[in-house]
Design a protein around this nucleic acid. Structure first.
Lengths: 209, 209, 209, 209
DNA sequence: GATGAATGAGTGTTCATTCAT
DNA sequence: TATGAATGAACACTCATTCAT
């Protein structure tokens, strides 16, 4: 429905302006001018300013979800998949940093409606992220390549939170280390944190708890 | 300077309204009415709407920084301090959830000025957080209670990011697990991730605690 | 660009209100209401309240400059052109007294921006007035119909100042004599002041008139 | 009544700020701060912001009127007095340029009340200026040193207008020639314009110069 | 579909003035 | 006298949205 050249131009321009100055500071008239369309055209294609944002949101999230699903489909061990997930996460952010920045920085603070309301399509997509993370961990638990002393779902939530937080702080300038290094470190620390114990070597060792 | 009864009332009311509806959706006239003062009084005390926000920001961050500094001053081992840091972090958030929510959700997306600009007082305070995290880890590295395969500063950044991300996702409703459980899990996983290596090979090693 | 019926209505209404109560005391909402448009429409067409003023300024000055240029184009002697200039000046003021009043009384005291800044379009137009006055005098000097004991440019400046001052005092109620009489007197006195010298030597010379 | 050290400080500070940024753009709180007094003190001494302006107005005008009266009291010829008047006018402006600027630029455009209303003390003082100009010219007419082909009062009005206009244009940057030159030129041209006729009877008479 | 002029409710902010102390 | 915290009525300006063409 929004796949004409015009709507692509609007999305591209809006992404750039949202990233540059923030969703709240970019005006629809500005977007229209920069995209070379009339202001009304935006409303024909997206219905509202939030509509543009949500379209960007959907496209960005969908590519992200699809990427993770593909990882899972490869059928590697849980540990390998977690490793791949980490690398994919940071790779995806790097490749779509403009759009990712918008989502991370301006959502949901600036949105008029409540796209985070229980049952909204956006909320469902965001919940699907946790679900996919959970599946990665569940596989590791099942095949013994990951050790989870806590419920899988809960662990998936903080795993996701640790990626999310590092990236958001990075994108708002509060973290110095470059993204690839963050990726490597997070991968390494999570591998360590979820490493299968050395039952053979120290059968009694029961850290955490 | 802003410690009259009136300015306290403005801060309390603004905190509540910002938390309820978001910084951008709370109006100064609304805050004034709810606080029982004239709108001009807000400007007499805080200069601008952003001024209110930044005052809340400063007070919240200062209590937070002071708490961490106190932890460090206790002189426990790095590992113990990291453990205490985790517990303090989530405890502080719980005790100041309203104000913490404002900071986490609405900053910096909604601010008109640039309080994250290099050199701004706000940026300095936020950078101080990472610095304190770094000191906790550095102590653990020095006393051998923590194993850091990566630079201390970089590790401090992702440690901070993991706390921040979990809490922000929790506060925006994307994480189900209750805060205390998040605290316990993060503590446990970080302890594991930074545990001194191969306790089996050095039988006296007694991780956790 | 601003030549729709709506923008003409805004200009006409604003001119009236500015003249009646002064630029600073006329509000944009009042202008909009009186012009029968929405307040936003003013900003659509003129960008700001100052923008209305500057449009009025430009239109008024342009007609004025064009009138003088036309006088010069007639190719009469300098003396005749000066005489015609005087009459044109007061005639123009009479015919556009409302707008002229606004310019004379409220400019530049009330303007927030600096339209008198060197290099601004307004400053250029105002400087062009002196330049045209200078050309009138220069012609008289060249053809011997005017005697100028001082530099032409400087004389043009006080010639202009004398018109300007008389009209401004008149419009602020500090001068009683009606405009036409001021015109006649200024013409006569300037003719006398710039009369070619030594009428005694050429007994037929009858300056003034 | 307003002759304490504090009220002098307020007047001096206000004069400076009014001259710098215009009456309308200088705030009472700013004046109070710069003068080192509380804002309320301004209202004790001057009753209102306009009150400050009017006090400056009165003091400036009074010195001006007194100067002209003194000129008249010297008992010189009308011609000599006119000459002295011109010199005094520009001299006074130079010596009080800050306060004169305020009056010339910001009055009456920015005043809330109507100090130009018929019967107001300000209007009376301003009318007195014309009256004194009239007396100078009347003396010249009586003693034969000035030739006035038009009513004395009317001539006084445009004489005053020519001074006023030149000075206002100068002070708003629309005239380049320095004040002293303007003084010399205006004196010379008016002398010429009002020169007694009969060039045939006194062939050597070369007024002006 | 595409346009862009028009809308108008809403916003943060200003500032001369007041008055209890 | 002097203070300065408090006031609150205005104000210029914004901008997502609509709709007649």
């Amino acid at each position: 429905m929004s796949d004409t050249a015009r709507s692509r131009a609007i999305l591209a321009t809006a992404s750039r302006l949202f990233a540059e100055k923030g969703y709240g500071n970019a005006t629809t008239s500005e977007i229209a001018r920069a995209a070379g369309v009339a202001e009304g055209t935006i409303y024909h294609h997206f219905g509202s300013k939030d509509g543009i944002f949500l379209t960007i949101f959907d496209e960005t999230i969908e590519g992200y979800l699809a990427g993770i699903e593909e990882l899972l489909a490869r059928g590697a061990t849980g540990r390998e998949t977690l490793s791949a997930l980490t690398r994919f996460q940071f790779d995806y952010v790097s490749r779509h940093s403009e759009r990712y920045l918008i989502l991370l920085r301006d959502f949901p603070a600036d949105l008029t409606a409540g796209p985070l309301a229980e049952g909204s399509p956006q909320k469902k997509k965001l919940d699907r992220i946790t679900e996919l993370f959970r599946r990665v961990l569940a596989r590791g638990k099942a095949d013994g390549t990951l050790h989870l002393p806590f419920p899988v779902r809960d662990t998936a939530e903080i795993l996701r939170g640790s990626f999310y937080g590092a990236i958001r702080l990075k994108m708002t300038g509060l973290i110095r280390a470059p993204l690839p290094r963050l990726a490597r470190m997070l991968e390494s620390y999570w591998m360590e944190a979820l490493a299968p114990q050395h039952p053979a070597e120290s059968p009694r060792g029961v850290p955490g708890g």
